[in-house]
Design a protein around this nucleic acid. Structure first.
Lengths: 254, 254
DNA sequence: CGAATACTTGAGTGGGGTCAACGCAAGTGG
DNA sequence: CCACTTGCGTTGACCCCACTCAAGTATTCG
């Protein structure tokens, strides 16, 4: 839970009361085995969820059986905030590693939002950043070479891990199989393997037994064409017109 | 404006007062020439925007100059609702055709949301569906053949045009150049051209002078692996636990 | 220690990219 | 009204990136 707090506190500390409320809202703890689905395409979304430990993947399975990973969820991420406006999942969320999540039923989230307006904005911001990550993912799969795609994926994951304090300088855990990297980048396992060897051979990274080490960040980021703007990491929240800020929504009857 | 109303009314009619409020909120009308940017990467988001006429593209320009279209905005779409939680655009929005938009400053949107809670949920839902479209776009660019990608793009655009009443049975305007289709699908212009000829040759569609006609919807959708679930077109809004419904957020000081 | 599971490697192939023309329609200006 | 331009669509030749198939080698785990 501390990890999520750290993310929410990017633009200012939470007070003790807000933390208490968050803990009380995300109260339903659930474990997931590797490969297990925490939410499944076609089913009702289970609730707003916070990942406490492990890594998840949003993915879609195409009619021909191919799998495309749409996003990777890291510890501290809060996702599916908005699930209450839709009644059916259009994709699945599965555990890439053993994982622990904390689920908040939408009724609880909405009560939280009503009682703590500032939290509601912070939570909303999480889903906005999530959308920005989706866009970056599109550009990655659409217009980059295999080499650049994987480099970009590593850049994103490293920066996001670092943002929640889960990275050493230029190193972090990355317990993903090459098949998973392929599903995330739209590449075949075989080609992922070859690109990894290139990246290692160029002295940019090493990746062994679930540990990623970046030996030359500048070069890796350059090869990836990585621009971290889209992670919206260190921006102030308010739009800065000096005005008092924006509520978002309030309530809805039926 | 009627087009946007039609979308918002998917799950129940708006009353006259709500329509009046929407009109008053989206008051800043702006025209865009073809190729002109209505929002630019690196700049501040201009406000929550409703597309009245024409077509827009969200796009990202990669360091090597390649362009990837992330989403196509159709008349009636309301987008960048959430821009107020970020201070800088991570992508651009440009006009694919001459376009007219109505912009609502975020202060106005927030006032609207406070006064009309039901509208705030409806607006939020638009951004949720937008995210679902982004995910489908990823799967399209990542794991489908060129043929299926273009077929899928046509399926999505046709269904969305139809949803706002801008389509005849199995036909709609689609004034996009082949270069644009390529930027949307991650393909080269040349290959787009060849795939189009295949699609025509197979008798699935015709596309000429900005008009798309679908001759065999079943076959096209099958070739695309198109599953319209992600457009969340005809779902009830509420999560159906029978409970009264979920407010979302309320206000934020800072 | 045996059995999965993951990772490597090689050989062959094809989808889609690039480059380079060319056709054609719609301006545009003299 | 015609020469010129500009933008878009079309075609051909060539090539390479990444896929597939297939087999073999490490790891990991029960």
């Amino acid at each position: 839970m501390e990890l999520a707090f750290r993310k929410l506190e990017r633009s200012g500390p939470l007070d003790a009361e807000e933390k208490r409320a968050l803990r009380a809202t995300f109260f339903r703890i659930r474990e997931g085995e590797i490969g297990e689905d925490l939410a499944r395409q076609g089913a009702r979304p289970p609730g707003c969820t916070m990942l406490l430990k492990g890594m998840l993947a949003r993915y879609e399975t195409l009619p021909d059986g191919a799998r495309q990973i749409l996003a990777i969820v890291l510890p501290g991420d809060i996702y599916d905030l908005h699930g209450f406006t839709i009644s059916v999942m259009d994709h699945s969320v599965g555990a890439l590693t053993p994982a622990t999540v904390a689920v908040a039923p939408y009724e609880a989230v909405s009560a939280l939002a009503r009682a703590y307006p500032r939290l509601s904005t912070l939570l909303l911001r999480e889903s906005v950043v999530e959308a920005a990550q989706l866009r970056a993912w599109i550009a990655n799969c659409g217009r980059r070479s295999a080499y650049a795609r994987i480099a970009h994926l590593f850049c994103e994951l490293y920066v996001r891990m670092a943002a929640v304090g889960l990275a050493a300088p230029y190193a972090c855990d990355l317990p993903l199989t090459q098949a998973t990297l392929g599903d995330a980048t739209g590449l075949s396992v075989v080609h992922v393997n070859r690109v990894l060897q290139q990246l290692r051979g160029d002295g940019y990274i090493s990746l062994k037994s679930g540990r990623l080490v970046i030996h030359d960040w500048e070069a890796l980021a350059a090869a990836a064409g990585f621009d971290p703007t889209y992670l919206h990491d260190a921006e102030p929240i308010e739009s800065g017109l000096g005005s008092s800020l924006v509520p978002y929504a309030q309530a809805v009857a039926q």
